[in-house]
Every structure is written in structure tokens, then in C-alpha cells.
Amino acid sequence: MIAEFVPLLIASVFAIIIAVFALLMLISKKIHPTKKDQRKTFACGEEIEEKNLNIPAESLYNNMIKTLRLDVIRRWHSGNLASYIITIMLGMVLMIIYFIYVW
């Protein structure tokens, strides 16, 4: 009987924790409002502005993909229509051979 209410219980616990933390953050912002850091970032002789300091978004996974050689799969989707249809036909033929062997 209690098992019916367990998800609701866990969800309300999560919601209470989130509400408590949000309340704490709001109160602390009211008491001591934060100011932006006026110092510039120092990087070995030169100073970088804020907006150049982001993580590169597009090349975020490029190193991992190149080392694991996962971009081979992207090169298979070459945009060539003939290779797509040959893949469909090849998949169909292999499936039929597997079914004949097994059925």
C-alpha cells in the first residue's frame, strides 16, 4: 500500500530540498548583493576579456571523437545517394540470408 505513494514521496522530498535551497539563495542575494568582479583575467603577460573566456562549444568533443576514431561513421554518410541505396539493399540481403539460415 505504501508502494503506491513512494514516487510521490520522493518527488516531494526533492521539491522541498529544491525549495529550501532556492529560498536560501534568494535570501543571501538580498542580504549581500553580488557585484561583478572588476579585475581582468591575467594570462601570462596579457589580459583576456570576459567574452573570450568561454569553453569552445563546437570543438568540445572533437579530441575525444578523433582519438576514438568515431568520425569514421560520419564519413560513411557521405551524401552519396547510391551508397545509401546499396546500404539498404545490403542490409536487406543480409537479413534475408540470416532468416533463411535460422527459420
Partner: peptide, 24 residues
């Protein structure tokens, strides 16, 4: 039956975008 089933899986798998038939 293997041929029938293979053809049907290919045709409907194309619409459902299963892997050898997902390129579209």
C-alpha cells in the same frame, strides 16, 4: 516466410529509421 519477413522489415524499418535504413 524468411523472404517475406525480410522485405517487410526493410520497408517498415525504413520508415521507422532503423540502422541500415536511417540515412534519409
Amino acid at each position: 516466410l524468411p523472404i517475406i519477413f525480410g522485405l517487410l522489415l526493410t520497408g517498415f524499418g525504413f520508415k521507422a529509421a532503423l540502422v541500415p535504413f536511417h540515412a534519409w
